[in-house]
Each structure stands twice: as structure tokens, then as C-alpha cells.
């Protein structure tokens, strides 16, 4: 499985756990409009959950924009690329 698909799958697990719904499916085009319980309070909690699950930190300015699964996955790809670069720089 490629990295992007892996990220999507982990996000799906996390969303299922958070909303307590095992049937929930995520696609890159899923947005907060598609999930009834994904309100503003849930949103902030979800973003901080994603941070700890993937061990990343989002910029405050991005936090409210992460309401689109494709965008979240892109951000996570980007952050893990940066991480690899910084590790590369260290070694």
C-alpha cells in the first residue's frame, strides 16, 4: 500500500473511533459537510487527535482549514516529507 493510502486508512480508523461509527468511510473528497457530527467542537478535537496519532504539529492558521480529508492527507504527506528532509540534514 502506498503512503497516501496508508494515511487515509489511519484517518478512517481515527474518525471511526472518534465518532463511534464503524461504518464510516473516508475518501479524499469527504468534507465536514458529509459527516453530521463533524461540528466545530469536534473539528478541533479531531485535528489535535490527528496531531498526536501522526506525531505532527499543524500551524494554527491551518487548523480551521483542515475540514477536507484530501487536504488533511496532503498536509500529512507534506509534514512527513519535511520530517524526512530534516532527518536527512541531521545525518
Amino acid at each position: 500500500m502506498d503512503k497516501y493510502a496508508q494515511i487515509l486508512r489511519t484517518l478512517e480508523e481515527l474518525f471511526r473511533e472518534y465518532f463511534g461509527d464503524d461504518t464510516l468511510c473516508l475518501f479524499p473528497e469527504t468534507t465536514n459537510a458529509d459527516i453530521a457530527d463533524w461540528d466545530s467542537v469536534a473539528h478541533i478535537q479531531l485535528v489535535f487527535e490527528i496531531e498526536s496519532r501522526f506525531a505532527v504539529r499543524f500551524d494554527a492558521a491551518d487548523i480551521m482549514k483542515l475540514n477536507h480529508i484530501g487536504f488533511i492527507a496532503d498536509k500529512l504527506m507534506e509534514l512527513s516529507e519535511n520530517e524526512r528532509e530534516s532527518f536527512g540534514g541531521l545525518s
Binding site: 478541533i44 489535535f48 499543524f58 494554527a60 487548523i63 480551521m64
Partner: peptide, 14 residues
């Protein structure tokens, strides 16, 4: 967590 404070107004981190 200043980020949480600025996006939600909570002065305590999760």
C-alpha cells in the same frame, strides 16, 4: 497550547 487558544479560546491544552 497557544494554537488551541487562538483557534478555540481554551487557555488549557488538551
Amino acid at each position: 497550547d497557544p494554537r488551541l487558544y487562538y483557534v478555540s479560546g481554551s487557555v488549557f491544552s488538551f
